[in-house]
Design a protein around this nucleic acid. Structure first.
Lengths: 221, 221
DNA sequence: GTCTATACGGTGATAGAC
DNA sequence: GTCTATCACCGTATAGAC
């Protein structure tokens, strides 16, 4: 709990910060509850209880449950997007390095773990939330695809790729998504590292001439 | 509506048949509603309304919503399992033919279409239903994996495979699952045929020596 | 087997004190 | 900003007539 006594005279800037803090806290609680109970059993009451505040607080900050879910999804999406975008920009400006960075980023434990994957699936699995998802995350999905495709096109031009850039990008993206599912539903022992390694093997098959580079890029991380 | 006047004196065998018919009808209605509204918005009332019967009927035949969902999931799982099992048994008794049959079967429009994929995701996305899913479908999932793996092992022994049988099976299965997701969330134009073709390209990369056979097996269908 | 009516619990959202 | 109390609604499941 922040200092509530002094709050009355706080400058509006700091008050806004506290409000942001509370919102973050409640969004975190929402994520936790969705993962634990599922979207349908995640109620304003359970969110409030898990955050150890009253239910009125949740309504005060988000007005409606719909709005809370929307901001939760937006937060997930932003975190996810920032993760692979920063990985992309931190990578060497070479198509192969960028491609590997893009793949590896989406399995980073910060955005890819059982809890968060479960929450993503909750949104995808609910017909209503899926509409919300598409409107909020559609552009990012497309952005990731196009980044992937761009690298594949660059590689296709320069290398002896074993499939077209379009096919390569689709294959890579599909396998990534399938491996996410494996983390959620598959054997409990399955880990992100193994997932990355599986996609990297696919990359080696698609770009056999760069096999060793790919191997090095995987072990570098 | 079946003949309800004569029903009183029907032999118990026929009455059981009618009951089965009604149950099927209600399960179908449940699937439709889950796809349209999502699991959480699928109520006993909406299921009954969609089937044009009273809500009491649903309770009479399934007692609880939980039980209805369980039987719905079981039906999905059975249909799905039968689909790939029969494809397996109808295929030539050669590892490659069986492998291709297994892949192709799970994209057959009878079990892989927007509606059914949406319903699967609804179950996966809900934390409670996911437990139900795991207990009902876990064995089938494992069966499919092991069938896949078996073919990959046979091929590995005889051919110059570019990856281990374990990796091959995991790659194939992941890509399949990711392509299912693409059908649900990805671009609306994406179709099963394209999905099959994508996995078959992976097979060609894994078993380069059998490239042409794989191509033929794809076009045969 | 099928219907209608209803009891009961839970959920989102409001009101108003502090 | 935060709380408690409360409302109005909706969903499941029951009861009992037909």
């Amino acid at each position: 709990m922040l200092n509530q006594v002094a709050e009355k005279n706080l400058p509006s800037r700091r008050r806004a910060l506290q409000s942001e803090f509370r919102k973050r806290q409640l969004i975190n609680s929402t994520i936790d509850c969705i993962e634990k109970f599922g979207l349908s059993q995640t109620t304003m009451a359970s969110i409030a209880k898990h955050a150890s505040v009253s239910q009125g607080i949740v309504v005060f900050h988000f007005q409606t449950k719909e709005s809370l879910l929307e901001q939760t999804l937006r937060r997930l999406s932003d975190d996810y997007g920032n993760c692979w975008k920063s990985a992309y920009h931190n990578a060497e400006t070479l198509p192969l390095a960028r491609l590997c960075a893009l793949v590896e980023a989406v399995f980073s434990p910060a955005v890819c773990n059982r809890k968060l994957v479960g929450v993503w699936y909750a949104f995808w699995g609910d017909a209503r939330s899926r509409l919300l998802y598409k409107s909020l995350c559609g552009k990012q999905d497309i952005a990731y695809s196009s980044y992937l495709l761009e690298q594949c096109q660059s590689l296709e031009a320069a290398e002896s790729a074993t499939m077209s850039a379009n096919n390569a990008a689709l294959s890579i993206e599909s396998m990534i998504n399938g491996l996410w599912q494996e983390l959620l539903i598959g054997s409990p022992g399955f880990k992100q590292k193994e997932a990355v390694s599986t996609v990297f093997k696919l990359l080696q098959l698609i770009y056999p001439d760069r096999r060793h580079e790919i191997e090095l890029l995987e072990n570098k991380s």
